[in-house]
Write a protein that binds this DNA or RNA. Structure first.
Lengths: 188, 188
DNA sequence: CCTGTTCTTGATTGGTTGATCAATTAAAGA
DNA sequence: TCTTTAATTGATCAACCAATCAAGAACAGG
């Protein structure tokens, strides 16, 4: 079985398995053995490719952020005056982001960012990128794009968090509507 | 030493120690032994009073929510037309909420709510109470207090989360200003 | 002084976990 | 064919942990 070129395949499988297991258990309290078994290999191999459990988590977090970034990018520039804005908001409330695995990954990575400097750095990068995307989208629509972007970014995070944490029936459409209502009010 | 009436004192000490240790480590990955030692007793006693580690966490979460609720209540009704509103917002961004222990407790309890039904219930209660407080405060200020309350609540959560997660220098004043700017725009 | 209750812990246990390492298998290259 | 390199795992270890329990210590009430 040992064919050369297994590394990227194994790593991808481990990242998938990590997100799946974090989603299934709802916490970062998953063992390397669980992850490795889910990915169809021995725990020793997982350590071989990633070195430590922390590195596995960070790779999974990078992947989640990359997917989100990609989902924004592929919707840009969009159509119309608010095309860019709509694209970003729509990406943020895409069904993908409400899947159990994604939700759990985000919330737990937030917690991870509190103790792991690299996780914190990744979160910062994500925030910066979202912020500059929003400012670019808002420039033709308001006098103070920076301020509106700051508010809008926080609002997106807050609405997302409340939707996933305190709703049985996740209503992405309602969440989006709340954002657009805000925009209708603040843009004019 | 075994004086009668130790239970509430021991429990309080354990709750304090729990919040301290969760804050220190930045995660829920603290042992009962750590908590008990910090509270100046044996791990066995902690189990004796709370039954399980989960119950200790939930008691700590109840305490955090109660403190926040109290900090809102003691500022109400406030002065002037926006008195109630100012009070709630001011309580949400009080220095206490930016202490390492409090921040870590909140973020980790968010994650806990994903897997522990009782934690989720507690979070729901908090959200409901904040919501009805906001609606009451907004009734004389807008035609649609429910919608503004929903937005404002999410905005408070989002701004708080971003402030504590992606800032080295926590600037509570800037966070508050962002909230008030939103209100100035949407009210009137 | 005696008895029941509360308080308290040391010792223990059954189970788990991240990580290491030697050893095996198979492909690639010369 | 022979050698080097990548892939892969079983076995294992040292550490840690939540929970239990029996037993001791001290107080209150009678």
């Amino acid at each position: 079985m040992p064919k050369i070129g297994a590394e990227p395949i194994r790593k991808a499988a481990l990242i998938n398995a990590t997100i799946f297991e974090v989603g299934r258990t709802g916490s970062l309290d998953v063992t390397v053995a669980q992850i490795a078994r889910r990915a169809g290999m021995s725990p020793a191999l997982a350590h071989h490719y990633f070195g430590s459990k922390d590195q596995i988590f960070l790779a999974a977090m990078r992947y989640i952020l990359r997917v989100y970034g990609g989902s924004v990018a592929e919707r840009l520039p969009g159509h119309g005056t608010r095309g860019r804005l709509n694209a970003i908001i729509h990406a943020s409330f895409a069904p993908q982001n409400f899947q159990r695995e994604t939700v759990s990954a985000w919330v737990n990575f937030y917690a991870l960012a509190l103790i792991n400097p690299e996780a914190e750095r990744l979160l910062r990068v994500y925030h910066r990128r979202l912020r500059s995307n929003l400012i670019l989208a808002l420039r033709p629509l308001t006098d103070d794009p920076a301020r509106v972007a700051e508010t809008l970014g926080a609002l997106i995070d807050g609405v997302y968090l409340r939707t996933v944490l305190t709703r049985d029936d996740v209503d992405a459409a309602a969440a989006e509507k709340l954002i657009f209502d805000y925009l209708d009010e603040v843009l004019s």
